[in-house]
Design a protein around this nucleic acid. Structure first.
Lengths: 203, 203
DNA sequence: AATTTATGTCACTATGTGGTGACTTGTCAA
DNA sequence: TTGACAAGTCACCACATAGTGACATAAATT
């Protein structure tokens, strides 16, 4: 059989990182302490300090793993105009948001904590999102009389908030956020906003 | 001089509640522990257990104070149509959101915690907001072909997210959220969405 | 004035957290 | 085979948290 070592730094490092990611995905950032991570990894917490320099170092280390995690977005297509492209992007992104509990935990974490580790993590994630957007955008341009970046930010922000909120309250402003039908309604509302603001008049 | 008692349950109860509210306003819900509240109120924590039954009971007790706190919204006016009214409402609410750090802390708390106390707090706040909305709405009606409640929820959700996010990251999706000019841009984008979706065609 | 009630104070337990020094032991090279 | 270094283990510290029992004293009641 293969040479199985009882002591292997690389393996335990992976175990620690994986335990932290799982913990974040399942219980949220509040559970991300040295003790819990060590317990979840089946490892002494001393090793977290030795190999990563504590929780902060560990977070910085898993940042790249996380950004890669979210980098696996669907393939870009060609869209007829800016409105269609924005609509498709928002729809896709919202579905990802609804499926990936870890992403929601991460976004909530960004809202709650302002440590340096989180800032770098947000920065790289934001960068990767920007690249994805540019890829989908292609050479499409929004109408000159609307502030497309601000409008995109508004709609993304709304989806972020509603997705996080669905985990705890399950509704917002009288709009339920539980069933797929509930979310279809939200999606439709967002699409109507996009359509009307970008195609309000085709002179 | 007035009869000043050194021992007065009513006074210390008020001190405790006020300390909790101040703590929430300044440091957020993470600081809302029995120890910190007692220290801030200059009172032994034992009294918190005796009078309120611990932190949870205290939270339920201050819920009404908080809802009253946010109930002091500006006077409603008359607006020509639904779009104008919605726009004014969103603008007013966003300004409140930007000014009141405690409100932001409360909203973040609602996203992070799903205890029963928070649910009741959210419910009463939501109810009060609904009344305020109805008061501003009057007999105005949105166009029949748009899902106005969902659109309102989207825009409010966006503002919630951006307001909370401004406290930590200071920007979102490439849109800065620091200066009044930054926020004016966001407001303009929201207004353009409202205008276009409600007035897309006046056939 | 005496007594009872309730208000306030203190000390303490139990638990969890981040963090560190000292120790044993496996692994690999000389 | 032997020695050295790294990997892993354990015991501890200091601190903060929630929660409780026992006690002193001010205030109200008799």
């Amino acid at each position: 059989m293969a040479k199985t070592q009882t002591r292997n730094r690389g393996d335990t490092e992976k175990k620690i990182v994986q335990a932290a990611i799982n913990l974040l995905a399942e219980e949220g950032f509040a559970a991300l302490g040295v003790n819990k991570i060590a317990a979840a990894a089946g490892v002494d917490k001393q090793l977290i300090y030795r190999y990563f320099g504590g929780t902060e170092g560990l977070i910085e280390h898993i940042a790249q793993d996380l950004t890669l995690w979210f980098g696996s977005q669907p393939v870009p297509q060609k869209y007829p105009d800016y409105a269609e492209m924005t609509g498709a992007l928002l729809e896709q992104y919202t579905q990802t948001l609804r499926r990936d509990k870890m992403l929601r935990h991460l976004l909530l974490w960004e809202l709650s904590d302002n440590s340096d580790a989180l800032k770098t993590l947000e920065k790289s994630r934001s960068l990767m999102f920007g690249q994805w957007f540019m890829q989908m955008k292609g050479d499409l341009e929004p109408p000159a009389d609307v502030d497309a970046p601000a409008i995109n930010a508004l709609l993304l922000a709304a989806m972020h908030y509603l997705a996080i909120r669905a985990d705890t309250l399950g509704c917002f402003a009288g709009i339920p956020l539980e069933t797929p039908a509930d979310w279809q309604r939200v999606q439709n509302a967002a699409q109507s906003l996009i359509q009307s603001v970008y195609k309000k008049e085709r002179s």
